[in-house]
Write a protein that binds this DNA or RNA. Structure first.
Length: 310
RNA sequence: CGCGAGGUAGAGCAGUCUGGUUAGCUCGUCGGGCUCAUAACCCGGAGGUCGUUGGUUCAAAUCCUCCCCUCGCAA
């Protein structure tokens, strides 16, 4: 049995950890994850998904606030290998070097493209046609380690962040399963990344959640679906926010100005952009619950036809 | 006490500021009609303790008070 220390935090990491528990040759001896965070309006302290799963398996959980300074404990656990996925902190070299079989990371892009914290969202927002998972050795620089294996995932025009993330999680789980035993046996080669081809996927900034209905309709469409269903996007009209929880592009054309709210079609909210029509099926008006565009139309929505988003 | 919005038929809203005829609109639903046909149209019906408590008043959805809940922002 190979003693594995897992490091990860959100849902994506949880799925990888699940697979580790299923691996016959793996014994998860420790899980390192981010501290519990206050969540929502009520600021309820909520544990990371990974922590919940680890506790169900009675695995010791470590939640250092600053791993850079609080890693002493981890060095003496006797782990053979480290697997990380979306942990959220830089792992110090002392930790990476304390395991004989090495430290590996699963990253949700085809490296060296899209290094960083939001590779899935950026892949869609950039209009890319494919992305994937990369299994790599960890290095001191974020997502810059030598690459061991990749699996590609097509990006469909209808994918949003949620559906693509799901595909990538499946892909990542499969990749880990295929390679885990070989990692244990040191039966792999690691190819350095071509630095000159590296691109970056910085985490989503709050202001990116506001959409501006200008420019190419496809860019805006990609931008929106890259941020759905989380964190969501909005535009302003009549001095209030309108959040969009769904988007598609209509075949129709229009001569209305960018950002104008067109008459509802089939109960859906339609917005003009660059001669084309963006269609929203589910929305949320500021101060209100999210609801089908059809319901929105029956109330506030119908008073907004002809108005423009800004 | 972080800031703000709101709780009115199954749904989304108006009405509240300037209390007072049968609480209205857009949908849905049920029944009927029209059409080659429709996310179309016409006619008719059912469905509401106006979030909860107490108060002011001849009279409260509307004014005052308590509480509960929802949502946006900030964190």
């Amino acid at each position: 049995m190979v003693k594995v220390m897992f490091m990860g935090t959100p849902m994506f990491a949880k799925r990888i950890l699940e697979q580790l528990y299923l691996e016959e040759n793996a014994e998860v001896i420790a899980v390192v994850t981010q501290p519990d965070q206050p969540v929502g309006r009520k600021q309820v302290m909520t544990p990371p998904e990974v922590k919940v799963l680890a506790q169900q398996h009675n695995t010791p959980v470590y939640q250092p606030v600053k791993l850079r300074k609080e890693y002493g404990e981890l060095l003496s656990l006797g782990a053979d290998m480290i697997i990380t996925c979306a942990y959220g902190q830089i792992v110090p070299n002392e930790v990476l070097n304390c395991v004989p079989l090495g430290a590996f990371n699963l990253h949700a892009s085809l490296l060296p493209k899209l290094r960083g914290g939001a590779p899935i969202q950026r892949a869609i927002m950039n209009g890319m046609m494919k992305t994937g998972m990369t299994l790599m050795k960890m290095s001191s620089r974020m997502d810059a380690g030598d690459m061991i294996a990749k699996s590609e995932v097509e990006i469909e025009q209808s994918d949003d962040y949620g559906t693509l993330e799901e595909k990538l999680m499946d892909s990542g789980v499969k990749l880990l399963h295929e390679w885990f035993d070989r990692l244990c046996a040191k039966d792999y080669t690691a190819e350095p990344q071509k630095e000159e081809e590296a691109t970056f996927a910085p985490i989503i900034r709050p202001e990116e959640e506001k959409i501006t209905f200008t420019g190419n309709y496809r860019d805006v469409y990609n931008h929106i679906r890259g941020l759905l269903p989380r964190p969501g996007v909005y535009a302003k009209v009549e001095d209030r926010k309108l959040k969009f929880w769904h988007v598609s592009v209509s075949e129709m054309t229009t001569d209305r100005p960018d950002g104008e709210i067109l008459p509802f079609i089939g109960g859906n909210l339609c917005v003009a952009l660059a001669g084309r029509v963006l269609v929203f099926e589910e929305v949320q008006y500021e101060g209100k619950k999210r609801c089908a565009a059809r319901d929105f139309k029956n109330g506030v929505g119908r008073t907004l036809v002809g108005k423009r988003f800004y």
